[in-house]
């Protein structure tokens, strides 16, 4: 699916406006916008302290502007990076202007990156934010994608959390097209096909001992 953008040429505007004809709404049924709603309160037995429960729900629009091609790329199963035409540095996550002070904010150009990466550093999470608890334990890897000078964080799947290695080769795997939303969670890392874990060692055993209770705890979550 391609996105069509046509410029609005109405004479009564002083700036060209993009036209958004590809629209998608995948709001879950339980996400409502109600604004400010007081939903309850409690009062201490000595009636000196009151706590009030306020619910607030608000829709945000993230306008990706000059970074949009990266997020559109995700919908298409591509990793788009940017590159400075002057010094040649390239990045994922993208920069619309070069970071090198000698290049004086040179506008960058888009490059499609290969779907391969290399682990720079990693961790195994046994606790996370509210939105991620049920996915625990999570391996988070910072990896350099393609020629990128910087490392990007994402989840590493399809392996035991205790088997991760610094410098290990990765491939980038996208969710099925119909499940993508144009966010970094549309893809994750997996070990490269040719990679094999090293034998068990004391550090791996330590991580395994720390992680096993997390699997059990997650089962208790509603």
């Amino acid at each position: 699916m391609t996105m069509t953008v046509s410029l609005n040429s109405k004479k009564d505007r002083f700036a060209d406006q993009p036209n958004f004809s590809e629209k998608k709404d995948y709001r879950p049924a339980d996400v409502k916008e109600k604004g400010l709603v007081f939903v309850g309160h409690e009062i201490s037995d000595d009636r000196t302290a009151m706590n009030q429960f306020l619910h607030y729900d608000q829709l945000y629009t993230i306008r990706h502007g000059w970074n949009s091609k990266f997020f559109i790329g995700l919908l298409e199963g591509k990793i788009m990076g940017t590159r400075c035409p002057k010094c040649g540095d390239s990045w994922v996550p993208v920069r619309s202007h070069c970071w090198n002070l000698d290049c004086n904010l040179e506008k960058t150009e888009w490059v499609e990156m290969p779907l391969t990466a290399k682990v720079h550093t990693w961790t195994v999470a046994g606790w996370s934010g509210r939105s991620s608890l049920k996915r625990l334990p999570i391996i988070l890897a910072y990896a350099n994608i393609g020629t990128s000078k910087v490392a990007m964080a994402n989840e590493l799947h399809k392996m035991n959390p205790w088997d991760v290695e610094f410098g290990m080769p990765l491939k980038i795997v996208f969710k099925p097209r119909d499940q993508r939303v144009g966010a970094v969670t549309d893809f994750h890392f997996e070990p490269a096909d040719f990679w094999k874990p090293s034998p068990m060692n004391p550090e791996k055993q330590r991580i395994k001992d720390l992680v096993m209770p997390v699997y059990e705890w997650v089962k208790t979550l509603k």
Binding site: F71, P93, A125, W127, S128, L140, Y142
Partner: peptide, 29 residues
């Protein structure tokens, strides 16, 4: 857990909040 996520909104919400979610994970890496 909501508080952890609020603080993590000082990480780049476009790239990191969605995959890490909380600062202890970034610091651990």
């Amino acid at each position: 857990s909501q508080g952890s996520e609020f603080i993590a909104m000082a990480s780049d919400i476009r790239y990191e909040l969605l995959v890490g979610g909380i600062y202890p994970i970034y610091y651990a890496a």
